[in-house]
């Protein structure tokens, strides 16, 4: 049985099938990439995994347990953390307070939450800005805060939604380093990314979807060479 699995997931918004029968399995310790053109259903899939949307049909299984009927906060407590594509910093709190709020998910003691938060901030490299208000951070800092906050809930599975979008080349390198460090720490990662350089470098396997349906799955090399993927990204003229 797979560590994490989604099984024939379907989501209708009115008459529109945003996700239409996507299935994949992720092994423990893997970095699993999810790609597809704009509007192909990647974020909707994430929202179903983390409990923001109820699937119209299909199942989400984490460590053998069905989780698609659970509320979001319970899914967090089970050990699935996520970041948001459109970052959601807790603006009028400092970076440290943002992360403390997240660390409280595993403890009731302020002392322990703060200790855990500082450790996570250090791990993710936000120490220099820990007393800055979250709304004052530049975009790279906000993206990193998303990851830091998710890490402070001590997830076993981390869902990263376009954490590299909008970063400059040197920030990109740092982001890739951080994601590798998180995996080395024993966290399984599912990542949505548009920047091909990033996703091809760090993923062990990639799953490509278009119009809510699976078009390819395999190693980065296999997927990059796949006819359907090239068509989806570049159009039939170039395929």
């Amino acid at each position: 049985m797979a560590y994490f699995q989604i099984d024939k997931l379907v989501k209708y918004f009115g008459g529109l099938a945003a996700v239409n029968g996507v299935s994949f399995e992720v092994g423990q310790g893997e970095i699993f990439g999810l790609i597809g053109p704009n509007g192909s259903g990647k974020t909707t899939t994430f929202n179903m995994i983390s409990g923001y949307h109820r699937p119209t049909s299909g199942r989400v299984l984490f460590q053998g347990r069905e989780i698609h009927q659970l509320p979001t906060h319970k899914i967090c407590h089970l050990g699935i953390g996520r970041t948001f594509q459109v970052v959601k910093p807790l603006g009028r709190m400092t970076v440290l307070d943002n992360v403390i709020a997240a660390a409280y998910s595993r403890t009731n003691s302020h002392h322990k939450a703060k200790e855990e938060a500082l450790k996570t901030i250090d791990f993710c490299g936000l120490m220099p800005v820990k007393d800055v208000l979250a709304k004052a951070l530049p975009i790279a800092g906000r993206k990193r805060l998303e990851i830091t906050r998710a890490m402070a809930t001590r997830p076993e599975l981390l869902l990263l939604d376009e954490t590299a979008a909008g970063l400059n080349p040197s920030e990109l390198v740092e982001a890739i380093d951080l994601i590798r460090k998180i995996r080395a720490n024993g966290t399984t990662i599912v990542i949505i990314e548009h920047i091909m350089h990033v996703i091809m470098t760090i993923s062990d396997r990639i799953h490509a979807i278009n119009f809510g349906q699976t078009i390819a799955e395999g190693t980065p090399k296999e997927v990059a060479a796949n006819q359907a993927v090239i068509e989806a990204y570049l159009g039939t003229d170039y395929a």
Partner: peptide, 14 residues
């Protein structure tokens, strides 16, 4: 305070 700042983010933090 996290609910005030962003309810969806707060949910994702447990």
């Amino acid at each position: 305070v996290s609910i005030r700042e962003d309810q969806d983010a707060a949910e994702s933090l447990g």
